[in-house]
Design a protein around this nucleic acid. Sequence first.
DNA 1: CGTTGACTTGAAGGTATTCAAGCTTTGTGG
DNA 2: CCACAAAGCTTGAATACCTTCAAGTCAACG
Lengths: 214, 214
Amino acid sequence: MQTYAALRIALSPSSTQSSLREAFDAPLQPVSFFPAGSEIYAQGEKAGAFYQVEFGAVRVYRLLADGRRQISAFHLAGETFGFEADTTHHFFAEAINATGVRVFRFATGADISSQLLPLALKGLTRAQEHLLVLGRQNAIERVAAFLVDMAERQGGLRQVELPMSRMDIGDYLGLTIETVSRVFTRLKDKGVIRLPSLRSIEIVKHDTLLIMSE
Amino acid sequence: MQTYAALRIALSPSSTQSSLREAFDAPLQPVSFFPAGSEIYAQGEKAGAFYQVEFGAVRVYRLLADGRRQISAFHLAGETFGFEADTTHHFFAEAINATGVRVFRFATGADISSQLLPLALKGLTRAQEHLLVLGRQNAIERVAAFLVDMAERQGGLRQVELPMSRMDIGDYLGLTIETVSRVFTRLKDKGVIRLPSLRSIEIVKHDTLLIMSE
DNA sequence: CGTTGACTTGAAGGTATTCAAGCTTTGTGG
DNA sequence: CCACAAAGCTTGAATACCTTCAAGTCAACG
């Protein structure tokens, strides 16, 4: 089980970055800046790197021919994304807001699989858990689960900042913007959350929200 | 890119098994037998291995408190499953039919991450693609996508064997058994498929099915 | 041949979507 | 700094799709 133990250490928020940096020789990997809405990579592009968000937020998504969009994940500061099963990107990645991204290019000959595996597994678990939300939960449960998740990833504070639009949230939860908006209103009317501004949410009754997300 | 190249080779159907065996010392990993419906592992159990289907089929799923179930993946002969991000299983795995599974226990000290990474990435891509199906496709599209996928995984033949029940298919596609049944009937009436028996499907118009799955 | 479980089919109902209008916030130029 | 435009968000009414509930059919097995 040595592998898993080492990976858990590498995964902990405080050490992820330094671990990744050690695996790649100095100088430090460069940080690229992406303005709001700009593309980080596109489906079909050649993949040769993975990415860590320094600041800002990223959406990873896929499109159907008629324009329907499914966002498979949001990535906030400190989180990693961009792994691919082969040499081509299967998804699109865009900066939601002004975003800084550290790019880790694969050096020829370097074996970084022990660094990458825990991150890939983490992403796999996340995706599989999201399948349950999309496949078996109704609109309120989806939004509640989303808010609980966002709160956790921002340190469990009452105040949660939403870097993304209602459209993004809808495309992540498999709902329309109208439904997302209606659910927000219902949660507000029930006193579960407050909406100090469009992009920030205060969780008033965290326990209620937790129960709702089940 | 050496890492990815090596992994692609390891991923190809013909070499996966031998590659995995090489990574683990002789004697060969044992094959365990699971009767239909039996549990391979449960959520919360300690994880210390991963698995490769020798024959039969496996469902991996998660439950909500009230019994709603989401199957995140089916695994057929030759496919691998059971990776976990930490030392605990986050899902249940059951044999659908009489199933043989090769168990690869993690030996202390062995670094198998380079073997595991491509499999984990493959699973990640599959899960993310399934998110699009659950989040943004309607019943016909879901069933069509499912049939196309099953056909591909069985070598692209016209005749597709379904090892699982309608209930399993529903819980995989986020639909009820009634809806699955109705869609099968509609596809049959349109002449897109034939249903020689409950668990076997003949794809008559493969192109139409492909278009429908988009 | 009868029983059991799995599947199919029908009718009614509910939840989310679609379409449409109005409101709020943000950004831009005067 | 204000006015206006544009974009994003909210709310309402009608519709559509899938689910729920119920009954009936089919197949496997003792």
